[in-house]
Nucleic acid binder design. Structure first.
Lengths: 160, 160
DNA sequence: AGTGAAACGACCGTAGA
DNA sequence: TCTACGGTCGTTTCACT
């Protein structure tokens, strides 16, 4: 499941100030009414609606619920750096299948793949790494970085 | 800005099946109407609204717009592993101030801090790491993992 | 916590500039 | 791509369970 790749030739969307302002509004509250947004940015309700539809349809923006894993009892998070012998993409596909993996990138550097995992307990995390991750074809070594605290997390790209 | 910490004594919220189903709906489309959700999960519109309000007020869930940095011209993403001499938290605060940093965790392992950064160009990334990051008090060494491709990204925690 | 009903406001399609 | 305008549907409030 490749969502995006650098140098993929994807068109880069140029947003005007109005669209940036709309996105900014929706980053604070994704359920704001179109008319409220319109008032904030100086457009009619219908105009806001059209622009939001375009942003959603083109995939530039998504409006989704995000949950806090900690508050839901998923207390063990970690980043895992993985070195691969052989086909990195195939390994990435396989590792991406694990439900505990919520984020996976192929990287340049001393790791080929870095994945973020969310587990309920140390035991779950250990089982994932030891019993499943290390048995994925191509995985040679792994290095685990347990989260001690999450200091910053933001979603507001494209509107700075 | 500490969003969360392990062993922080935060109450863990127990969600029933209905609330999980509601979250699941909103993870697919954060602007779905309460009545549509109600039909999907078997509750009245008013009941869905009350539950969603509670989930939002308690901070368990957020409904936000997320954008695709690539499509907006932020083509250089990287994870940076950072080793700190001295006060890790102070360094984390300082590094978190950089606008290019969208994600920052304090970790156990061979890095003290791991940060995700999003830049428009290699030059921006280089400037960030060399001119600003390495001058943050306490930063001893850094290791950069450039993104080659993003294979998986999901937001649907708590509802598996 | 959940339901139901009525008033209000938001949303959606269409038409026109 | 914007505004204008009705019909329709969603949301809100309130009384009740």
């Amino acid at each position: 499941m490749v969502i995006n790749a650098q140098h993929s030739g994807q068109p880069v969307v140029q947003l005007d100030e109005k669209s940036k302002a709309i996105i900014e509004q929706l980053q604070h509250d994704g359920r704001q009414s179109y008319s409220a947004i319109g008032q904030a940015v100086g457009l009619s309700e219908a105009a806001v609606r059209q622009r939001v539809s375009r942003l959603l349809d083109s995939g530039v923006m998504q409006i989704v619920a995000v949950t806090d894993p900690m508050q839901l009892g998923f207390a063990r998070q970690a980043l895992i750096g993985i070195r691969i012998d052989g086909d990195v993409v195939a390994a990435a596909e396989a590792i991406g299948e694990f439900g505990e993996v919520d984020y996976l990138v192929i990287t340049a550097g001393s790791f080929d793949i870095i994945a973020e995992v969310i587990c309920e307990s140390d035991a779950d995390l250990f089982e994932l790494i030891n019993d499943r991750l290390r048995r994925v074809p191509g995985v040679s070594t792994t290095e685990t970085f347990m989260y001690l605290s999450l200091h910053k997390q933001k979603y507001n790209w494209g509107t700075r």
